[in-house]
Design a protein around this nucleic acid. Structure first.
Lengths: 170, 170
DNA sequence: AGCTTTGTTCAGTAAGTACTGAACATTCCA
DNA sequence: TGGAATGTTCAGTACTTACTGAACAAAGCT
């Protein structure tokens, strides 16, 4: 195979630079969206990197290096991500290091957590309706709406999870 | 009509005390659940009170008194709630004061916002898939799952909003 | 006009979050 | 055994959030 010309090498270097910037932006973007849903940004950045990393499992040292973060931060945030079932810790034969990777069906877990939140809203609406049990219907309508909407969503949540997984396997 | 006995009066007072405590708990609970979804607790407390208040419209002074909060806080948080379409400002004839009340179909708005978040996740997954466009399918599966799950939810969201409203009108 | 009422603005501050990195604990290797 | 590698813990700190309440602006009343 013929060697690349200097121009071709330059072009490849530029492509790689662009790729690195895109990767960095992607990782930061996942961080921001995690922040938007109430999770720490660093947890999102870890998750973002694990979504695209090759190999898909990364050690703490890898994460420290790639994300330019402290070991303490990576340690705390990886344990948070494990706790909320988005990543898992894996060990490799003959390796002292722990490795982290995206948990299979992580999104089902996240959807489950969204469902838990909907249930909390529905339950709160029921408590509110109890408080207004002696009031006329017009005064209860605010809570009835809240209740009905969330009871409706709650009823369909399980199908979201199961249908969503079928799509993945289909 | 015959006057209540002292014992009956005592019993009613106790009932009212219990009711007040339940109301306070409800309001604080809504505050906590708002906090859990990334909104300020005070916004939740305002919303919680407006869910059960009689009359359903309350002035700033009412909110300051009931919630034992500063005018500055109530001012800032009511404007936040208006901005995210959960409450609205109403004026009453011959009244100088502004009043706030739960916006009709507020929950459709909140569901809309949930959908926006799902769209953001799906779009991010697409960006990630683009980054890994030259990689084998096993490496892309993490992002494919994220994409498929959110594309699936996104497709159904509009029906949940419209079906949820139908339930309310039915 | 002055006064009162009402809602907004924002400086100040308390509290909470989340990050760093040193110290430490654990495990493995020579 | 001592040293190296790895991950955890936590004191310290920077930063952010969100609350208070005084000062202010606007509007209505007398």
């Amino acid at each position: 195979m013929t060697a690349l010309t200097a121009a071709e090498l330059d072009s490849k270097r530029i492509e790689q630079k662009i790729k690195q910037i895109e990767v960095s932006h992607f990782v930061e973007e996942v961080g921001l969206i995690f922040e938007a849903v109430g999770l720490p940004r660093m947890a999102g950045r870890i998750f973002g990197w694990l979504l695209i990393a090759n190999p898909p499992h990364q050690s703490m040292g890898d994460l420290v290096e790639v994300l330019q973060a402290s070991k303490g931060s990576i340690s705390t945030m990886t344990r948070l991500l494990i706790q909320i079932s988005l990543i898992e810790r894996v060990s490799l034969p003959g390796q002292r290091r722990d490795y982290f990777q995206i948990k299979p069906h992580a999104w089902s877990q996240l959807t489950q957590q969204r469902m838990t939140q909907i249930t909390a809203f529905r339950q709160l609406a029921e408590r509110g309706l109890n408080l207004l049990s002696d009031q006329p219907p017009q005064l209860r309508q605010r809570l009835q709406e809240m209740h009905d909407m969330h009871a409706f969503l709650e009823k369909r949540c399980p199908y979201w999870i199961s249908d969503g997984n079928k799509n993945n396997n289909g």
